[in-house]
Design a protein around this nucleic acid. Sequence first.
DNA 1: ATGGTTGCCTCGCAA
Length: 256
Amino acid sequence: MPKIATWNVNSIKARLPNVLDWLKQAEPDVVLLQETKCQDEAFPHFEIEALGYHRAVHGQKSYNGVAILSKQPLEEVSQRLPGDEADAHARYLEATTFGVRVCCLYLPNGNPAPGEKYDYKLAWMARLAARAEQLRADERPVVMGGDYNVIPEPEDCHDPAAWAGDALFLPETRRAFRRLLWLGYTDAFRALHGEPHRYSFWDYQRGAWQADEGIRIDHLLLSPQATDRLSASGIDREVRGREKASDHVPVWCVLE
DNA sequence: ATGGTTGCCTCGCAA
């Protein structure tokens, strides 16, 4: 305990039946949601509270939006990733629950690269690394989870050549992700599963799901004190095959 | 074969 999951739901309103079904089935203690795509007052608080979850939300109209659900209260909530006061995107949320500092992040996609959007992605990743370093210095359990929009290694996609020029797989993107690992963080899925081609996202287009042409871009990065307690992790792949599915599926870990 | 799909909310943009 606790079981901590991350899921890019691609609109909490469009996905509500799927989200409620999965919460009842998977019974996570803490859930990091991305791309809620609604303002805070439009968040389905009533339905989710009915399943026993506290909420912290940081929404935005139409785009982005993050939320944290927890079976225990959420304390010391912060909605800002430090380092750029002018950044208005709702992409970050941090709170303490179950004695763990959890960070819910929706890292910028960055396409097309090169360009302004890619510059924003790299700047955002530098800010994230700075925050990761601060949190690690506290020597407490930290889980930084979310849609990283980073394919860490060639084996995390079907066809590396097809992704060669993409912002999700460019060498500079992967280097920025590895910087988080070098700071002492562990990829909770990869730590326990060595097999290649385990994905968390399949595009809606080109029959990507049917052909199993996906990518692994949703990650849970654990501080050393959290990694010490890591007992299980997984990807709830079958969720992608359901009616009205998100293009992402939940990724989870259990800390003893 | 530079296509195709989804969700937002306006008919284009982001993913």
